[in-house]
Nucleic acid binder design. Structure first.
Lengths: 132, 132
DNA sequence: GGCAAATCCTAGAATTTTACTAGGATTTGC
DNA sequence: GCAAATCCTAGTAAAATTCTAGGATTTGCC
């Protein structure tokens, strides 16, 4: 139950783009400078975010990244899931079978935790994180 | 953001003790049989739970483990923290310093997530998990 | 007293995951 | 055509996770 740097950096990447993306796409070189994260690592994060539909890319000179939708419509949950996949993979909640069905109250418990987390992270937008 | 097997098994261990601990301490050999978890691994989980004050141990023949307090007073959060340490260690929330103070909204975000999680897991007791 | 059932303790090993680097290929504005 | 960018694939070092191993110690019971 800790947050990966992948998720934390991805959030910072998104808020950086939200903040500085007013006049065109934001190149990763700038983000790297501002956030102190290596360009090569940012490239990987950006790839996941692009595939997940959080940002769009503009190739070539003068290129960079834009938010795929307006900042208030992109949730932190979306970004985190793009970076590290779904929350709380508990065997019982995925395709697998419980070896013992006896204690399914605990699997219900984990499902509830997932809901609690999703509820929180999907209730906060990139816009909120970018302001102030 | 996935749950460790350590935490999941620890919860199952606790609910097993809660269920079968009516007539005296529960030996790990029984838990191992019922839950399909190796005794040697259970011993390690039990050690953490003992140190954290979730269970008390009775050594020697006829020994085993008892809940340290009544089941309704032990929360799932307590057990999980005993198993895997505190939630969500985000650098900014611990002793360390942010390299860049610019984006402290994201650290506030992570702090909120921690609260949301603690709130959920501390609202459910071992008693609730053991029944049904 | 002695056996057997237990917890206790420490070490380590195999596997997986994480965090990050490297090197180049490709696209495109000026 | 140059330079600024994204794109793509590999690989690697370190850390964490999951689990096993082997014994030491305690204690109820006959």
């Amino acid at each position: 139950m800790k947050t990966s740097t992948k998720a934390r950096y991805s959030l910072r990447l998104m808020t950086d783009i939200a903040k500085y993306g007013g006049k065109g796409p934001v190149p990763l070189a700038e983000v790297s400078r501002r956030q102190g994260i290596s360009m090569k690592y940012l490239e990987q994060l950006a790839k996941s975010l692009t595939e997940a539909g959080c940002v769009t890319s503009v190739r070539g000179s003068q290129g960079g990244y834009r938010l795929a939708r307006p900042a208030p419509e992109i949730t932190a949950g979306e970004v985190i899931r793009a970076a590290e996949g779904d929350f709380l993979p508990v065997a019982c909640l995925a395709e697998e079978e419980c070896p013992l069905q006896a204690d399914c109250t605990t699997s219900r418990f984990w499902g509830g935790l997932r809901k609690a987390i999703d509820n929180y992270v999907d209730g906060i937008s990139i816009a909120e994180l970018a302001e102030a």
